[in-house]
């Protein structure tokens, strides 16, 4: 993979696949998370064209996924939802083939409903109710803290989402 880093081929390919006129490109998604993000943002059900790229080489993430949605500008709120699945993601808003806005996602300090607690003995997995997690960002690691069972998990330990 590393010998590809400077390959011009990579840039050309990325450009060709991802050039869009209007819309949003969600870049730097940790490989494997893109499908969940599409589900989470319900991008598959809004009739806009969605392109998904998986396992692109990436310096920071080794492998990354990219999502492109045409004719839709992601709201900051939607962008923050992306953050919990892909804390390193960047959002590019495209108008007339140009990036007019680019920002990193930000993890909300409190995440309601979205995460399913990995602790099988947590009340949230045994009663019909919404979950609540506090988040704690430390460099590249994201920890989530269940407000009910009070257990702390690494973001990677969350396997199931309430989508």
């Amino acid at each position: 993979m590393s010998n590809q880093k400077k390959s011009p081929l990579k840039d050309i390919r990325a450009y060709k696949v991802f050039a869009i006129k209007e819309g949003t490109v969600i870049d730097h998604i940790k490989a494997g998370k893109a499908l969940q993000i599409i589900e989470l943002l319900k991008l598959d059900s809004n009739n806009k064209i969605v392109t998904l790229g998986m396992n692109f080489p990436s310096k920071a993430l080794k492998k990354k996924d990219i999502i492109k949605v045409e004719q839709k500008e992601l709201t900051p709120e939607e962008a923050n939802k992306v953050a919990i699945l892909a804390p390193q993601a960047t959002i590019n808003i495209i108008q007339d083939f140009k990036v007019v806005k680019k920002f990193k996602v930000k993890i909300p300090t409190l995440v309601e409903k979205l995460l399913i607690c990995p602790n099988p003995k947590c009340i949230t997995n045994n009663e019909n109710m919404i979950t609540r997690f506090k988040t704690n960002v430390n460099k590249n690691s994201v920890k989530v803290h269940c407000e009910y069972c009070e257990k702390i998990f690494d973001q990677n330990e969350i396997k199931n989402y309430n989508i």
Partner: peptide, 10 residues
């Protein structure tokens, strides 16, 4: 007292 964790908060 309850066997599940987080039950008191619930």
């Amino acid at each position: 007292r309850h066997p599940l964790e987080g039950s008191a908060r619930r």
